[in-house]
Amino acid sequence: MTAPLLEVDDLHTTFRTPRGAMRAVDGVSLSLAAGETLGIVGESGSGKSVLGRTIMGLITNGPTTEVTGSVRLAGVDVHGVKPAGRRELWGTTVAMVFQDPMTSLNPVKRVGLHLTESLRLHKGLSKGAARERAVELLRQVGIPEPARRAGQYPHELSGGMRQRVVIAMALACDPQLLIADEPTTALDVTVQKQILDLLQSLAERLHMATILVSHDLGTVAGRTDRVAVMYAGRVAESAGTDAVFGTPRHPYSQALIESIPSIESRPHSLLATIEGSPPNMLAPPAGCRFAARCRYAVDRCRVEAPALEPRGAAAGSVVACHFPLTAPLHHQHQEVGA
């Protein structure tokens, strides 16, 4: 087996705030093979976005930030190389799609220019060739009349079209890994599905590894090979997507899936809830971080932090729980992951 495309080992991202150290990412390890897709799911404050940005090298060691552990991307140590080396990775090896397409686009630059600039810079294409490739890219991301659209300004496009342009920009230099950070949160529901379908088909067609970061379980359901559920800076559970949605082994994953209303459930039925709220990341509790909200927690959970281990399940499936669940989830939610 060849070395994986992405290898993250015991990654910690800590922000020094006036009120103390905030461990946004607190010991995350994961790996991703070429062409594989991974969903990272968690609520706000779980560290999922920070993790994405640290992998990308957007967050590095600095006066207020401390990154320890390693991120190896196509054999390059992202946090060990000089800034110039990191910039070389961006675009050609790894690219990112952000939540709000409008902030990713320069409002005074035409759509085409966003694409041709990087094509000429990174790939040394001529003006004409870059233009041709830009139109081709726009066609590839499903923009109708790409030649005309290339001449328009970002504000002339709808939100969904803008996000397609951003995706085209990310694809311009054929990255091996695409990190999409909440790519559809700012979009309408009917457009969300189209963008997710697009990302999925592009990943398959271009054999591009994808990390899909989202707060919305539905976004990753059925679209990624694996899912990592994050809670309070740590991975609670990581397994095949169907396994996580069908037989979640961490009580947090289970509760999260159960708390989403289903279209199948009867009107006026009460939803399952997770009581309380996530821990304060400036002073996280000892032991399992979910213990305070966990309906199965015992004394051991509050003192001893569970390691992320296979614990008897199939290969590639790990859970950080002393007492992993085994029963499949209540039927009504199973079709979500199907």
């Binding site: 905030m22 404050g45 675009g91 320069n106 230099c173």
Partner: peptide, 18 residues
């Protein structure tokens, strides 16, 4: 630059803790 969005650094504290 495909990553022209990189020029807008995000504040490190992306999500306020409750």
């Amino acid at each position: 630059m495909p990553m022209s969005e990189l020029t807008q650094p995000e504040p490190p504290l992306l999500e306020a803790e409750p």
